[in-house]
Amino acid sequence: MTGRPVTGAFRPSGPALCDNSLRVAVACDRVPPALAALAVGVPPAPPGTGARRAAILVGDGLDRDGLTRLLAGEAGFVVEADESPPAASSPDPGLSPDPGLSPDPGWTRVVVPQALFALSLSTRTSWTAQPAAAVCDALVLLGVLDGDSRGTVELCLHEAVANAIVHGNLGIASAAKNHPEGYETFGRLLSERLADPRRRRLRLTVAARWADGWLDITVVDEGQGFDLALLPRAADGNSRSGRGFVFMRALAAGVDVCDGGRCTRLRFALT
């Protein structure tokens, strides 16, 4: 790969990230390959159509409002830096006064995409920053969703994100709830796994693309996947698990699970 990463100090437009925002967010043009792969085939935004950056690399402190603001207007890709940053690359000294964050040299170069945004967060931040709500907030701000369609998209996306975090990256099987006092076991496992340094660093990736009357959202985790044959096909009020997929299948125009359960694609018709 040729060319140096373009890294510029960046101050987000609002206070939600951190007062010391120079140390928590930088604009860049490289993202993790798995994130870039979700934008393959997406055309670049026409030049001169806005001030969006290709990507923004953020540190600690991202919350729902900050994530919404970044996705809605600041960047095509939002990437949370790893808890243990990669070895220092060489940010352009003309652009950056050593903001403390830098993209990994092995990341993939991206441009500002048209009608797409994507995020890559740690499980730790995904747990607190309400990424499904933030994605829908941003889609409303961009005029892609209205108040009526937002509820449907948010519930489906939320279920896909919850599955990716709990069953995927935290590796907690639904069966943990399937016995008396199961919720105590489930709660203990959640606490233990969220404190596990390896698991809390696993990534949640979400990409939203809107074009030709359709909204397509992809949710990817880094867990072990699951057996698709175990998914329920219909609502059963008594079941303790699998209800999220029932919601998705009932409300989305399309639900596709791929990569052995590590990837969920949702499709919605835009009106």
Binding site: A133, E159, A162, K177, Y183, S241, R243, G244, V246
Partner: peptide
């Protein structure tokens, strides 16, 4: 304002 499948599971418990 919002409830997900896990929240419904909590109501059942």
């Amino acid at each position: 304002d919002f409830i997900d499948s896990a929240g419904l599971g909590m109501l059942l418990i």
